[in-house]
Write a protein that binds this DNA or RNA. Sequence first.
DNA 1: CCCTGTGAATACCTTCACAGCG
DNA 2: CGCTGTGAAGGTATTCACAGGG
Lengths: 254, 254
Amino acid sequence: MATGRTHRPATRSRGIPEATVARLPLYLRALTALSERSVPTVSSEELAAAAGVNSAKLRKDFSYLGSYGTRGVGYDVEYLVYQISRELGLTQDWPVVIVGIGNLGAALANYGGFASRGFRVAALIDADPAMAGKPVAGIPVQHTDELEKIIKDNGVSIGVIATPAGAAQPVCDRLVAAGVTSILNFAPTVLSVPDGVDVRKVDLSIELQILAFHEQRKAGEEAAGTESAAAAAVARNDSAEQGPDGDVPAVMPA
Amino acid sequence: MATGRTHRPATRSRGIPEATVARLPLYLRALTALSERSVPTVSSEELAAAAGVNSAKLRKDFSYLGSYGTRGVGYDVEYLVYQISRELGLTQDWPVVIVGIGNLGAALANYGGFASRGFRVAALIDADPAMAGKPVAGIPVQHTDELEKIIKDNGVSIGVIATPAGAAQPVCDRLVAAGVTSILNFAPTVLSVPDGVDVRKVDLSIELQILAFHEQRKAGEEAAGTESAAAAAVARNDSAEQGPDGDVPAVMPA
DNA sequence: CCCTGTGAATACCTTCACAGCG
DNA sequence: CGCTGTGAAGGTATTCACAGGG
């Protein structure tokens, strides 16, 4: 995915490729697991296996951050955790609001991975007055009327939209007007936002459709008898590359 | 996202680029909306805007499917809906099982986008005996013990994992052993699977972390005063490219 | 004359392979 | 001697720009 800052005119050396940024969270998760097991150092080979990528890619990714490894040894786990966290901006606290507290919104509110990594659910917002005051994941749901006030009072810059498709754009507009500049959209719609606002999209049915495409292809191959090369290809497979999101939802500058 | 069939040695002409495949569902959604409004034809420019991509990309994507447009006019909406559906394998019925019926699993079960596009929730499975028999989205939850039987009886080839991280790999192994060859994984873990099995991954916290990265960068730019070029870049932005998932979770052959 | 389809140019990502540090 | 860091090579994806059909 091209994505993001395509339009940026040769910014300073600080330019970390988007594809690399998308993998940093994966590395971070693997490193955190190692850290919890008190593993002091790790080689690119080992860490790559844990993260589901190949080691050359991992080393190149890290090379954009700086030279944090030791030749002949590997990487210091704790140090790398810190460096990646800092690069991702996780050493600071990001208040987040979730709009739309249905099953999905509730799942997000309960999701532990949030709090553990710099994110704090500042508020839950829903349009249904019957929800108001009800606690979800220990946080009382507030009515949409309060949206602007909540954003401003908490200095929220990241919003999560988990509403039905129809409500997404209006909610998005209000979030942006109130000062939100990054949006994670779970509603199956294309949002339009002004320049300077990032949107990332997570779409369940799209993922399934992509799987169906590959599934269909597999079936076709079988039927087509032994198309020699194809069959062999499926058999031989070395580095079990687990696409994290290599091409996951793209960020878009505007 | 590299992804998928990287290892495949020059398969037949049928090779549609992975990035294109990832966008087909987007086009399909936009087209379906047009179809519901009884719009008969659409130009690449209009459709591209609706899908949040640029028109050159869209035309190139369609060119891999064949020549379905009419010069000087555009594309026939109904015809294109059919062609894309067929290409994605959505003209057939895909039974799907969802394992792990917490908030997220319930959200998935209730998600309308499933049924509407060739997918049928064949069963909901959870390890909690207390859940057994309870209907979610009108479908009774079954216990994990039944997993193998369910897969086989229903000819399921696509499984969705919405369990906690710890349970994901064992569940995955059982799904695969029972015959599932495509997995959509919502648990924050790297799954290992044998060759020939595709895994796609959706990870909420990763998306948020990527947003945080860009958010941090924005803040930094402001602080750095007017770094001329950067500021200008944010201002000038033409085609509001909404990355669908250009690089969304990558498929991995195994 | 408008809009598709596509070669050619460009940008981006991944992988290879190895120099060189610890 | 092992493992990082990185030039260079190879692939893939995006964008440009225009030929040519309806």
